[in-house]
Computed example of a mutant assay.
Amino acid sequence: MGIKKQITMGVMSAALGIVLIGGGTYAYFSDTETTNNTFAAGTLDLAAEPLEIINVNNIKPGDSVLRSFELQNNGTLDIDKVLLNTDYTVTDAKGDNMEDFGEHIVVEFLYNADKLDEVIYKTTLAELKSMTPEAVGESVFYPLLGEKGLPVGTIDDLVVQINFEENGEDQNQFQGDALNLEWTFTATQTAGEQK
């Protein structure tokens, strides 16, 4: 046998050996089992009722407006914190405003309508607008809701009193002006836990 035949036979023998070894790895008992798993995310659903909390006309310095509204947890997860972002725009009727109308509107967050002397937090709209939502949450909602937050299916009543502050100075620049207030409530989830 020539050298070429010997090399070819050696290569073919090696290839056959590899095929037999590779094929032999599947020659043992085996069994499989497939599981079906589900991960369903919960929902955060914070609602405010009514959506229009304050709509009042013809206010003057010294007037106050008392309104109540509800925060509802309609989701499937407990709400840990409620945050509040304040924004407003002023329509200057005569174009003569030297000051921000929001600096003259004082907001008092109250525990409930029966205890008007129990103020949770008091500030002007201008100050409220400049605060972070987290700071407002800590100042207003944490004292009201406490560590329990807003559990699933619960409703908490909030009461606000809005005062057009009478400061004893000339406030004629605000005659005919309008302030459009937008409050955005944000709910955050509770901390994750072992399930």
Rank of each mutant, 00 (worst) to 15 (best):
M1A: 14
G2N: 12
K4Q: 07
M9K: 02
S13Y: 05
A14G: 10
A15S: 12
L16R: 02
G17D: 05
G17Q: 02
G17V: 02
L20A: 14
L20G: 15
I21C: 10
I21H: 02
G22H: 01
G23V: 04
G24S: 13
D31C: 02
D31E: 11
T32I: 00
E33V: 11
T34S: 15
N36S: 15
N37R: 15
F39L: 13
F39T: 13
A41G: 11
A41P: 02
G42N: 09
G42F: 04
G42T: 07
L44S: 11
D45A: 10
D45Q: 07
E49N: 08
L51C: 01
E52C: 06
N55Y: 07
V56I: 12
N57V: 10
I59C: 02
I59K: 03
P61H: 06
R67K: 15
S68G: 10
F69Y: 14
N74T: 12
L77V: 10
D80Q: 10
K81T: 15
V82K: 03
L84V: 00
L84C: 05
T86M: 07
D87E: 15
V90K: 00
D92C: 06
K94D: 14
G95V: 07
G95I: 04
D96L: 02
D100T: 10
F101T: 04
G102V: 05
E103Y: 05
V107A: 12
E108G: 09
F109L: 06
F109W: 14
L110W: 08
Y111Q: 15
Y111F: 13
A113L: 06
A113D: 11
L116I: 13
D117C: 01
V119Y: 02
I120Q: 00
Y121C: 02
K122R: 11
T123I: 03
E127A: 15
L128S: 13
S130K: 15
P133R: 05
V136H: 05
G137M: 00
E138M: 03
S139E: 08
S139C: 01
L144T: 15
E147P: 06
E147F: 09
L150T: 09
L150F: 05
P151S: 06
G153Y: 03
V160Q: 01
V160G: 10
N163G: 07
F164G: 08
N167V: 08
G168M: 03
N172A: 14
N172S: 14
G176L: 00
D177M: 00
E182C: 06
F185A: 11
T186E: 08
T188F: 03
T188P: 04
G192P: 00
E193T: 15
